[in-house]
Nucleic acid binder design. Structure first.
Length: 602
RNA sequence: GGCCCGGUGGUGUAGUCUGGUUUAACACACCUCCCUGUCAAGGAGGAGAUCACGGGUUCAAAUCCCGUCCGGGUCGCCA
């Protein structure tokens, strides 16, 4: 090693020792005589002092130092003179008096400030172009170290519980359902392709048939779909599958795992040891989304009946057009200005709502019963009656001084927009406890959903999910009502994990596939391996797949998006600005694969 | 594919709505000099910007209009 100790590890116990340090110059403070530098390495920062009287040659070199130069320094650890200690630094009681210095490498001036404590003040594109420098910042170092700790914890935790980590191939067979596949052309079999796994779903089921009973893998999953703050092409999943289990076993395991992670690795966060279990229907009604932020209330309520009976035209027509009207009440927001409300209208409109109706209830109204027309401030004040406002207010739990938000329209878009408005208002009103991680299981998802585009049923989760036992009968009569043995883990408005109890009998699996429109031949061609395996003593099994990137984002204070917990992420258009990829390849490479590019000139 | 916000020295922003007073402002960083207890060091001076790109309107465009590209958010999409 070029160093005898890490900069960040020196304490007052080392007083008097001669040490050799190596690291990066974070900051230089040149007093003409004395020069101070903050020397940083991966453990922390220590102050080094250059004194022209003690070592003139060393001092002379120190005059040349600039930020991010890499240096090796030999010196003596000393207690700082009384009054010059720095309580901000763990090494603040001591400093190193330099006797020797060697410049290991110089550095150009960095394109942004590496020494900044917080992230997010620099343009993200620039950060990605210089990701190797961005990762040098304290915030990113902390994020990736946290990530390492969580993954290490998971491996230890599951290993102790008898789980076996098994790797599965990255080059697998394409199956066109679900997300878009990334394809890899085969050189040895020209004209054919591998796909990158969207998840190891079928492979882990095969491992259950193989008798491993408890499997896990920290698995990379690939989906060629549009990217978002919480979605990358490639994401990391803790893939878990178990045999001879039901939902309860999975929930217990995940509850213990997540509680332990929060307690051990993010003790400044808290969560409840028993995660609430809410049904899909419940949360869609109460929050308008299947991944609500449960850190605050402000539930949504259906007011379609009141709206339909009223003379408010926008509401009435929306409901007559097979829509709904839903509302929630923002406490003590009566005083929202025209400008603030306009902002919120724009907010919901960019999220698919036609508009937003507000009703402000004057705090001077003593009770809802004594409400007067003059207490109501609303763009629909002329067409809605006081009695209707009272009915709405009572149903949604408004008090005088509250601001009521109403959105009407198609069920899905109303829920989408209003649920996001609820979360926005939660933030604006300061209702969120930032230290809380509100974990919950969502259960009883529908098995199928109707796809308007293709006019056909498609699996809500995936086609290997078992229906609930009593629902097999609904297959022919009312498939939309069938419930799946499918569950999600959610926290703070994010989907953290998704899983299900699988179908383990060939006849049942074929029944689902055939319902989805697959012929026997198609089943055999695409899923032959799984169907065949189900015939050889496949045990009942199920699993779950928690997303690692989102979990880390949740546990750290430094992450605005999952891009902040991934070392080398891509932009929303799927580009890596550091490597400048995707990029063209050599014509010879294409020729070898038998691929010709149609010119795509615009 | 649709919609919204943004792109101004190395970095972060102001200026754009309401075109001309701008020789494009401020802070940080950078360079030079001074300075022996700083840690957001301090002081003096200096350099640094074809205002993302292309076109248009105008006597005049960072500013208005159209298009393109790029970044972010979002709807669709993501079993």
């Amino acid at each position: 090693m070029l160093k005898s100790i890490s900069c960040g590890a020196i304490r007052k116990d080392h007083n008097g020792q001669i040490v050799t340090l190596a690291g990066w110059v974070q900051k230089r403070r040149d007093h003409g005589g004395l020069i101070f530098i903050d020397l940083r390495d991966s453990v922390g920062v220590a102050q080094v002092v250059f004194n022209p009287q003690k070592s003139p040659e060393t001092h002379k070199i120190a005059e040349l130092l600039r930020s991010e130069w890499v240096v090796k320094i030999k010196g003596t650890v000393s207690l700082r003179p009384a009054g010059t200690e720095n309580s901000e630094l763990p090494t603040g009681l001591i400093e190193v008096i330099a006797n020797e210095i060697e410049v290991l490498n110089e550095s150009k001036t960095a394109p942004f400030d590496i020494s900044q404590k917080t992230q997010g003040q620099v343009d993200e594109l620039l950060r990605l172009e210089y990701r190797f420098l961005d990762l040098r910042t304290q915030a990113m170092q902390e994020n990736l170290i946290l990530r390492h700790k969580v993954v290490q914890f998971i491996r230890d935790f599951l290993g102790e519980k008898g789980f076996v980590e098994i790797e599965t191939p990255i080059l697998i067979k394409s199956s066109p359902e679900g997300a878009r596949d990334f394809l890899v052309p085969s050189r040895l079999q020209p004209g054919t392709f591998y796909a990158l796994p969207q998840s190891p779903q079928q492979l882990k089921q095969l491992l259950m048939v193989s008798g491993f009973e408890k499997y896990f893998q920290i698995a990379r999953c690939f989906r060629d779909e549009d990217l978002r703050g919480d979605r990358q092409f490639e994401h990391t999943q803790l893939d878990i599958e178990m045999s001879f289990v039901d939902e309860t076993d999975i929930f217990d395991l995940i509850e213990t795992l997540y509680s332990s992670i929060v307690n051990d690795i993010a003790p400044n966060r808290h969560t409840n040891p028993n995660f609430p279990r809410l049904t899909y229907d419940e949360v869609m009604a109460d929050y308008g989304t299947d991944k609500p932020d449960l850190r605050f209330g402000m539930k949504l309520f259906d007011i379609s009946d009141i709206a339909l009976a009223s003379n408010v035209k926008v509401l009435k027509t929306a409901i007559e057009d097979q829509g709904i009207a839903k509302a929630f009440s923002a406490p003590n927001s009566f005083g929202y200005s025209r400008k603030q409300i306009d902002e919120l209208i724009a907010f919901v409109q960019t999220r698919g709502a036609a508009g937003l109706i507000t009703i402000a209830i004057d705090p001077d109204a003593d009770t809802l019963e004594s409400l007067q027309k003059s207490h109501i401030k609303s763009p629909i004040a002329n067409s809605i009656t006081v009695d209707e406002v009272i009915q709405i207010a009572k149903r949604i739990g408004s008090k005088p001084g509250d601001l009521i938000f109403i959105i009407s329209g198609k069920r899905a878009s109303t829920n989408t927009a209003l649920s996001q408005l609820r979360e926005e208002m939660g933030k604006r009103l300061g209702l969120i406890d930032e230290s809380e991680i509100a974990l919950a299981f969502i259960t009883d998802f529908p098995l199928f959903e109707w796809d308007e585009d293709t006019q056909s049923w498609s699996p809500a989760h995936h086609m290997f999910t078992s229906p609930q036992d009593e629902d097999w009968a609904l297959f022919s009569s009312d498939p939309g009502k069938m419930k799946a043995r499918h569950y999600d883990l959610i926290a703070n408005g994010m989907e953290l994990a998704s899983g299900s109890i699988r179908i383990h009998k060939r006849e049942n699996q074929e029944a689902v596939m055939s319902f989805l429109g697959y012929s026997k031949d198609q089943m055999q061609e695409r899923f032959g391996q799984l169907l065949s395996a189900l015939e050889y003593g496949a045990p009942p099994h199920g699993g779950i797949a928690p997303g690692i990137d989102r979990l880390i984002t949740l546990l750290t204070d430094n992450a605005e998006s999952i891009r902040d917990v991934i070392a080398f992420p891509k932009t929303q258009t799927g580009i890596d600005p550091l490597f400048e990829t995707p990029s063209q390849v050599m014509p010879s490479q294409l020729a070898e694969l038998g691929i010709r590019i149609h010119s795509n000139e615009k």
